[in-house]
Design a protein around this nucleic acid. Structure first.
Lengths: 251, 251
DNA sequence: CGTAACTTTGATTAGTATCAAAAATGGTGG
DNA sequence: CCACCATTTTTGATACTAATCAAAGTTACG
């Protein structure tokens, strides 16, 4: 995917949040982005550092995480092409968590000051960005529920459902087959489990005929059963939120 | 506390997020609020319902929660006097979680449309509200870490540290003594534990001399030790964020 | 002053973590 | 293309944290 295509993906995503005019879209496009390609596992934001830029993910996958005092890692979200990576940090002074690439990624970054100016001159863009952060917060809340109150098999089933829907909604995957570029250790860090246990649960999901795995590709063989066991309801993804066109809500 | 006092608390809180002019503050004050007093355990927002109003908490405590398919509850945040309860839902169409009072509460509510209009005419107010939601999101992230990667004693110690700092910062409690109006069951639902286990852990914290409890009042006897065992770092609370005056950061 | 809600304690169990090591996979340089 | 090495996945055995079950105290409240 070319850089301009990646940028269009971001614009499209924003436009789905609030009814942006063509002028609004152009204002986003004409921000003074600088483009880079990052290798897997590169840090985009480090906890404790001042935040000066906001990063857009044009291609690839990235994730947020924190490390506890005794060295355990918790992943708090996973991001895919087309998403703003850093509205969460951009208007605060110091980053309170790390953001790291999962795969090789093309990114565009823009000074947060430029974004602030844009948000003041284009209220609808500001509104779209705000709604985007609200939806991200909704996903954080669901993850609290996931790690706090579901058992291991539900947690993983829930995670797989969420990714399937988000990827499909973003046009990055088909209905029930997707490439999940996460190791089992990263899945463990997303669900508050150990890698060993994640492995056993994934096998169990396969044994029960809910999913099939081919390397890191996941195909969902029984949506209803997976949703059921994952206690999954897509409401928190707000896939219809504020958009100019209402899409058929999935799952 | 009188109603106007409660409202001033909210204005003060917003003004700490972005440098509001007197006109900005007045614009907030002159919103067409309707005031009510709610009994403990009243619902303010219900999952699945359309959101038309935004609620400000003038006095008392409230919390957000979801209930899983098998009836377990997870509390995702706890709120205190002076906080906006509903910026999280207000710009989305349908609530994805419940908000309920913990104690008797005085609230002010305002139609979300009025808030949207205000945010368009007063960009700094919009900015302050946005930052407020970002800080709330930062707290959600920390809670994911808390439930995902800390053991029971750390989780509870962390929670107690967070409340102590937030209450102190809001001027609602002294340095190391506060009234926490939560039952042990509610603490359990906030930490992903069972009430029985919460009870044992609280006793253990007392036995080790870190806290003392007198009914629901908690007094912290050894801040350093509690922070240490709770793996607590206040950075995620962004207590200095964007404010006109920088306060000494605590803990 | 009676009743419901909450806290506390004890005994047992269950679900995941931990520890250890083998097998499979993927990438790299020769 | 192969051999090698690092990473990831898989399996087995055991340990431990927190859940569950049950019931007695205690507190708050109408």
């Amino acid at each position: 995917m070319s850089v301009p295509e990646g940028l269009e993906r971001v614009v499209r995503r924003l436009a789905a949040r609030a009814p942006l005019s063509e002028a609004d879209r152009d204002a986003v496009r004409s921000l003074d982005f600088s483009y880079r390609t990052l290798e897997p596992a590169s840090y985009i934001v480090r906890e404790g550092e001042p935040v000066r830029n906001c990063v857009l993910l044009l291609t690839g996958f990235a994730f947020r995480h924190k490390v506890t005092g005794d060295g355990q890692r918790q992943i708090m979200s996973v991001h895919m092409a087309g998403e703003f990576l850093d509205l969460q940090n951009s208007f605060l002074k110091v980053a309170d968590h790390n953001v790291q690439t999962l795969t090789r990624c093309d990114i565009a970054s823009v000074p947060t000051d430029a974004l602030r100016v844009l948000s003041e001159s284009h209220p609808l863009v500001a509104r779209a960005m705000w709604i985007d952060t609200l939806i991200e917060a909704a996903i954080f809340r669901e993850w609290i529920v996931n790690v706090g109150r579901r058992d291991s098999i539900s947690r993983i089933a829930h995670l797989l459902c969420e990714f399937a829907l988000r990827l499909r909604h973003a046009g990055l995957a088909e209905r029930d087959l997707y490439e999940l570029p996460m190791t089992q250790e990263q899945i463990a860090d997303s669900t508050g489990l150990t890698p060993v246990h994640v492995n056993r649960v994934l096998k169990e999901l396969g044994r029960r005929g809910l999913i099939e795995r081919e390397k890191r590709a996941v195909s969902i063989r029984d949506w209803d059963a997976l949703r059921e066991i994952g206690d999954f309801n897509s409401r928190y993804l707000h896939m219809e939120a504020g958009g100019p066109t209402t899409r058929a809500s999935a799952a």
